[in-house]
Nucleic acid binder design. Structure first.
Length: 892
RNA sequence: GCGCGCUUAGCUCAGUGGUAGAGCAUUACCUUCACACGGUAGGGGUCGCAGGUUCGAAACCUGCAGCGCGCACCA
């Protein structure tokens, strides 16, 4: 048996075991295994990303599920991989090259050479996050690791595109899209986040041409788009303006254009809300989605006055050309003032769409893009609605349903280079379109579409494209649909919903049976973790400092189902302390020596043994139920409570009475109980704390004599603890009364310890207690009492007549005195007992009130009534004891 | 505007009808031979507010308030 160090040192233990797990192939899933299948696909992190606390939470949960499933005897596939993350990766590489002074723009390199650089970058940084997941202990099947740009995967993406194109669900069209002026690409609606901005609402007036002297006042937040206005709209039901429909106004800009070329019509459109502003709307079809719709209805000209980067173009007039839109806005307002057309400016709060990635306002922009009408919508909706596909927590199903009910076509083309290129070619002369897996035979006559696909257009195929689709592979047959998906609610639309639709469309089945949504990790103040705030600790630093197990435990313990997690490093510290406790409790076992996992003899079991076995039983039940219900934080709390507050605080202390005694038979039996408990505890802990449990499982030799696939090779393969069945309970004579008895004794001991404090006796000093039992007491029990009370001795004196005023603790077990040899603090003791009496009588009052109510007696269930009556009896007895003690103080 | 969530000890949060809990922080004592990454004992809560249901509500219902999030083309 190797020695166990005094404090747990995780780093060497963790790297040792991870290497060994990999070597023994314990993570790899066998498609031909006879065991029932369990599978998860990892939400693929950005290939050039680094591990965040969000990843820690997410992947720890997946690892818990995977490890638990293995212990349940399942064949487990946890399929890992990474995502190419189009915009993010391309931006990072381009920025780096610029910083190094190698390019000023990616055009300097050209598409092919730039892509070479991105691949170089990927080779260099792409493995980092995978290595970090390994440090965390993730039991992924690394032999099946996938990347969304792998050739086979890319083929799947193209195949799906071609198929959806053939089905007519993918189409190309000139439409208003969300345009990111920094990334210079179209975005999907999901990549736009609305932010409230405080801006100004500008009111300017224009004269109605046909009615000189009549002015219309228009309210706008974006006067810089005036050069793009091609109409002014009013509501046809608005009495104020209806008569003006058909007349014209002259828009103020661009001033270098003659007035007759700035003449625009006044139109009537129901979209205009006459409650808002002045009820007059300027219509800019090229720069506003709603205006574009109005333009379609009225066949208005579309005048694009901006460049792709958000600066104004020549059509905005020579005065503004090249200026950024924000500068132009100021200029426009000033100029309107000069012209005498600006009536007023009002502070105004409005919602502006921001590019999620670049964090700049998006520009609605008319451009030619590829769109997808989602497939398999109905099946996907009803799968969740009916509960066939379950969300945890359930409330996300409603959000999903709402989104599914309002599906907008998905803009899937991106003006980027890094990604899956659209498999479409245009004929150089005829403009004929070819969509296929291969380029047309006479490739020279064709030009491929320059755009790539939205990253999510590859990610939505993840559950089956990683398993060998479109071939019907063994892996696919065995592990699809997957069992659980663990992800954040922030990608419910981006990824989860789309995967469901792709799953139905291409596999005819949902891609997973359950989706667990984690919370979002925030800092102590509730702010999201972000690089710019610098409030995001590096998980690897935390692992180096506290250990991976500690980090896992700390994070999971603080992460309730469906709630955001306020992260605090103290939680990790708690995890470390807990591991250390586990370590030392095992060390205590090891220091006792003796045979490993001896037989437990029922006739030698003490009440403490029975008590801890029953507590273990409860922990097994609660732990199993917590994991069933995805309540991982509850599981951590169950383990914490059982192991620390029950096993260590009470049971281990009580066993010292045995180990310090001379009864070798009983010592051996106690060791057998300890081994039984610990071997169960380690298995219960293993999904949360994989490393330390493996280390202890081996050093305590619980792996001995077990078949390799049932814990012999590794605790990973050990069986999940089963609750102690009736047979077990009967054989060992376990009974609820044992549990209650020891529970009662714990309270009694606490009360006894409390006496020392009130007598101002240092807690380290050994003292003499006198115990006046109310019934029989065994020598073993009095030994345990002595030990738990840290007493020099406990005199058991059934007929003890205490000197007046001796501090006493009362219990149904009897009375415990702390004789003080004349040093009695009458005043202090009176105060203590009076306070206790007060508490007792307050409790009695509460119970009495209930019992005094006739309707209570009539309506309450018998068991509850019985329990209340018993409670009253107990309190009354205690009241008697305390009253007597007080009496003795007052009348010595 | 619609929808969802939250409000319990100083802090972070458990607790879905029957004696208010945990961790951290705090107070006092203890370097007792598993563990100071520890031990022992304690202090601290009218469970956001107002009604209602019930023998009984932190929990169930209604309303209100505050905070947070999602969805929504109001310029």
């Amino acid at each position: 048996m190797p020695d166990i160090t005094k404090a747990y040192e995780p780093s060497t233990v963790e790297s040792k075991w991870y290497a060994q797990w990999l070597e023994s192939g314990l993570f790899s899933a066998k498609a031909d295994s006879p065991k029932p299948a369990y599978s998860i696909v990892i939400p693929p992190p950005n290939v050039t990303g680094v591990l965040t606390l969000g990843h820690v939470l997410n992947n720890t949960i997946q690892d818990i599920l995977a490890r638990k499933a293995r212990m349940d005897g399942k064949e487990v596939l946890w399929l890992p991989g990474t995502d190419h993350a189009g915009i993010a990766t391309q931006t990072v590489v381009e920025k780096t090259l610029k910083k190094q002074g190698l390019i000023r723009h990616r055009n300097d390199l050209g598409r092919d050479r730039f892509l070479e650089k991105v691949w170089e970058w990927k080779e260099k940084h792409g493995g980092i996050i995978i290595q970090q997941l390994k440090k965390l202990g993730c039991s992924c099947d690394w032999s099946r690791e996938r990347f969304t740009m792998d050739p086979a995967y890319a083929r799947c993406v193209q195949r799906v595109f071609v198929d959806l194109h053939q089905k007519g669900l993918i189409y190309r069209g000139k439409r208003m899209v969300n345009w990111c002026p920094v990334s210079l690409t179209a975005l999907s609606d999901e990549e736009v986040v609305m932010k409230q901005q405080s801006g100004l609402l500008y009111y300017f007036k224009v004269e109605v041409e046909e009615r000189p002297g009549t002015f219309l006042t228009i309210a706008t937040t974006r006067p810089e788009t005036i050069p793009g206005d091609t109409a002014v709209a009013v509501n046809p039901n608005d009495e104020r303006y209806a008569s003006l429909i058909g007349s014209h106004v002259i828009r103020p800009f661009p001033e270098d254009l003659p007035a007759e070329r700035r003449r625009i019509p006044i139109i009537g459109d129901g979209h205009v809300d006459f409650q808002f502003g002045t009820g007059v709307l300027k219509v800019t079809p090229a720069h506003d989605k709603a205006d574009f719709e109005i333009g379609l209805r009225h066949k208005l000209e579309v005048l694009d006055v901006m460049n792709p980067d958000g600066s104004m173009n020549a059509l905005a007039g020579s005065a503004w050309e090249g200026l950024d839109r924000v500068k132009a806005r100021k200029l426009a307002a000033e100029r309107l003032k000069d012209l005498g057309q600006l009536e007023k400016e009002e502070p105004y709060q409005n919602n502006v769409g921001f590019s999620e990635r670049a964090d700049v306002p998006v520009e609605p922009r008319l451009s030619e893009q590829w769109f997808l009408r989602y497939p398999s919508q109905d099946k996907s909706r009803s799968a969740v609605e009916s509960g066939a596909l379950k969300f945890h927590p359930e409330r996300w199903a409603k959000v999903y349903g709402h989104w599914m009910g309002n599906l907008q076509d998905w803009c899937i083309s991106r003006q980027l280079w890094w990604g899956h290129r659209i498999p479409v070619w245009y004929h150089n002369q005829t403009r004929e379109v070819h969509c296929g897996l291969e380029a047309p035979a006479d490739a020279a006559c064709w030009t491929q579409d320059p755009d790539v696909l939205d990253t999510w257009f590859s990610a939505w195929l993840w559950p089956f494209a990683t398993m060998g689709w479109p071939d019907n592979t063994d892996t696919l047959k065995r592990f699809y649909p997957t069992t659980d998906l663990v992800t954040g609610p922030d990608i419910l639309f981006f990824w989860v919903a789309r995967m469901i639709m792709a799953g139905f469309e291409y596999m005819g089945e949902m891609p997973f049976l359950n989706v667990y949504f984690t919370g979002i990790i925030r800092d102590k103040q509730g702010r999201k973790m972000s690089k710019s705030l610098g409030n995001s600790p590096d998980p690897l630093d935390l692992i180096a400092l506290y250990g991976a197990d500690a980090l896992r435990f700390g994070v999971i313990r603080a992460a309730p189902l469906g709630q955001d997690v306020l992260f605090d490093e103290q939680q990790v510290e708690l995890g470390r302390n807990f591991c250390n406790k586990l370590w030392n409790a095992s060390r205590f076992r090891q220091l006792q020596g003796g045979q490993t996992e001896g037989e437990i003899a029922p006739e030698l079991l003490t009440p403490d043994d029975k008590w801890i076995l029953l507590k273990l039983d409860r922990a097994i039940v609660e732990m199993s139920e917590a994991l069933e219900g995805y309540r991982f934080n509850e599981g951590a709390q169950v383990l914490y409570r059982f192991f620390w507050s029950e096993y260590c605080d009470w049971y281990v202390e009580a066993t010292k009475a045995v180990f310090q005694g001379a009864d070798d038979q009983r010592k051996a039996n106690t060791l057998a109980v300890i081994d039984f408990i610990l071997s169960n505890v380690l298995r219960l802990f293993h999904p949360y704390l994989p490393f330390i449990t493996e280390e202890l499982w081996n050093s305590l030799e619980y792996n001995q004599e077990l078949p390799a696939d049932q814990g012999g090779a590794s605790i990973m393969t050990a069986r999940w603890p089963k609750r102690l069945g009736t047979e077990f309970r009967e054989f060992y004579g376990l009974d609820e009364s044992d549990e209650q008895l020891v529970d009662l004794r714990c309270e009694f001991v606490t009360a006894g310890r409390n006496l020392r404090r009130h007598a101002h006796i240092p807690s380290g000093k050994k003292v003499r207690y006198v115990f006046k039992p109310s019934g029989e007491i065994t020598p073993h029990d009095s030994n345990v009492l002595k030990l738990l009370l840290n007493a020099e001795l406990v005199d058991v004196l059934p007929g003890y007549d205490a000197p007046k005023g001796t501090p006493v603790a009362a219990s149904p077990m009897g009375e415990l005195f702390l004789p003080l040899d004349g040093l009695i603090d009458i005043e202090g003791e009176t105060a203590r007992l009076s306070k206790e009496l007060g508490k007792i009588e307050a409790e009695m009052e509460k119970v009495n009130q209930k019992l005094a109510s006739p309707s209570f007696i009539e309506k309450v269930p018998a068991a509850v009534l019985e329990e209340h009556r018993k409670r009253l009896i107990d309190w009354t007895a205690k009241q008697g004891q305390v009253k007597a003690a007080l009496e003795a103080l007052v009348n010595p």
